[in-house]
Write a protein that binds this DNA or RNA. Sequence first.
DNA 1: TTCTAGTGACGAACAGCGTTCGTGTCAAGT
DNA 2: ACTTGACACGAACGCTGTTCGTCACTAGAA
Lengths: 242, 242
Amino acid sequence: MTSVPNPPWRKTRKPVKPPLSQEAIVDVGLRIVDAEGLDGLSMRRVAQELDTGPASLYAHVSNKDELIELIYEKVLGEIVLPEADPANWQEQLRAYARQAHAVIAAHADLSKATLAKIPTGPNALRLGEYMYGLLIEAGLPPLDASLGMDRISLYIASDAFEGSQHYAHMRAAGITSPDDYMKHLLEQIGGYYRSLPPEMFPYMTGNLDALVEPNGEDRFEFGLDLLIAGLEMRLARMRESF
Amino acid sequence: MTSVPNPPWRKTRKPVKPPLSQEAIVDVGLRIVDAEGLDGLSMRRVAQELDTGPASLYAHVSNKDELIELIYEKVLGEIVLPEADPANWQEQLRAYARQAHAVIAAHADLSKATLAKIPTGPNALRLGEYMYGLLIEAGLPPLDASLGMDRISLYIASDAFEGSQHYAHMRAAGITSPDDYMKHLLEQIGGYYRSLPPEMFPYMTGNLDALVEPNGEDRFEFGLDLLIAGLEMRLARMRESF
DNA sequence: TTCTAGTGACGAACAGCGTTCGTGTCAAGT
DNA sequence: ACTTGACACGAACGCTGTTCGTCACTAGAA
């Protein structure tokens, strides 16, 4: 902008913009993901938001992958754990899953990151320890508790991701209201199913309403019910074998 | 290569290479995905393999997304459906899930494509109709059958994707043998868990073996058992309410 | 047979990406 | 006062998906 040297009576001009830091980078990154999705996140975009060049970020973050991991860890920190009460482990597990799902789903398609990596950050460990303890105290053998935790975590992340894809399609189609999108989608899919030849697809064409009726929340709850009921059955079978 | 004009006595030289077609493009695309993963698939790469430029592909495929969808549909065609036998619906469902999982997992991280889209191709419909019919004939009300089909499809795809990520990490680390990778991973994760402070993570550090012992197949089977058991319980509860 | 319309092939280019290199700048330690 | 080291960052490399304009060629009409 200006090449005039600093006047000698003002020794050094303190920089007006805050210095770069990993935290600032992660904050900006999360803001971008929230606003534009994971695909909208680029090193250049983050740098631009911080009034600098992309190369400057690499002093604080070794990778784009690492940046995404840090963003994800920060989001996991938003989850607050209900007090453990092993007598009602089913309801506790359900409450935890709902909350974790809601928090993750609130940040666009960030859930893609979990599916792609084994989470090892402090917050991921905190959540894992919680679920593991809950299932062990409920009476499940450690192996079942470990597998149950693993499967439920996968379920939460994958459903959140699937939901985010719908949201992305909605935005790509230029629709802003989720209701309008749902209506649009139902008409489109429903109409398509209706046009299928009934002799080839007797069940789908014959029971069409049940296919298109349930919304995202219904689907999530149903799957969660199945998983928890499966764990219950395992626990009951284990108990009666003694 | 050569700018010498065609000799006039050879009227027209028939092109030796086969003409471009959607099928050829999809075939090459699938081969690339198998060999290098979904990230290795690029329009340029496909064009190169077909001895042409990237622009030529767009006459047969409107999009990279459409290409991926076509590749996925082709893979789904590899799944052969067991004859329906509603009396043993649990075993049938299990067999179907295993096969679908195996087929999808055999093609690197192509499963990412399903998670990202609602499958509407002919093969996806064929599989959906099969599951829907199986669950309805088993006695489940259509809504439960619809949701069950939806959740099991999601589970198959998401587990296949998670598995493919491990495979990708393995290849990125330069390890070729899955056994070596497993050993490497177990040492790394196990060592990390062991180093955690026991007062903060009593359950994980206290029941460490159960965390790292099960392999990918164990995990898939466990989750599948949970889902099927959940459906069984639903069916039983429905029957006793009459 | 000659002209024309249309289709597929494709080189070149655009705008964007993650990442690295080398240089510059500034503050702390000796 | 001088050196050292950490951070900042402009420029560039090689890659991406996609579009534009041009070219060759084939099929049908005149």
